[in-house]
Amino acid sequence: MSDIIGYENRLFLAKVISHGVNTDEISLERVEEMKQEVAEISHKLVAIKADDFSSNFEIKHHVRTGIEMINLGLEHGSQKDITKATRLLNKNHLVKFFQIGNSLKKESRHEISSSEEIFLS
């Protein structure tokens, strides 16, 4: 999980994980599980979305998208309450947060039809 924390330390997701690990509310075992879950989501996202599998840039973009969607879903699901978010991370597979983030993005795309498809284009 250190990769995710290091990847973007301003992400709410990263703050929650740091908080959970520091307060022993999130075990290292759960951290390992979350690494696996992020890897699985990224893998599927690349397989579903990538146009050019030789482009490291595009692959990184999809991996980043996956993490951003999880982050967005966690923010929404916890109403940015770090204590609640810690509990949610412990109890739910990260794909749940991804789905929430993805749904939020789609909804906002409907609302602002002119906005660019930044994430899941």
């Binding site: 696996q36 879950e37 699985e40 989501i41 893998h43 599927k44 996202l45 397989a47 579903i48 929404h76 699901g77 609640k84 509990r87 949610l88 109890k91 739910n92 597979h93 794909v95 749940k96 991804f98 789905q99 929430i100 993805n102 749904s103 939020l104 789609k106 909804e107």
Partner: peptide, 27 residues
């Protein structure tokens, strides 16, 4: 995917949820 240890499915990735009825375990 199962052979590679991947549990997340394509269906889950493409699935959207009802944002008014979130199905998150909290306890």
């Amino acid at each position: 995917d199962r052979q590679m240890g991947i549990q997340v499915t394509e269906e889950q990735i493409l699935q959207t949820v009802d944002l008014k009825k979130l199905d998150l375990k909290d306890r």
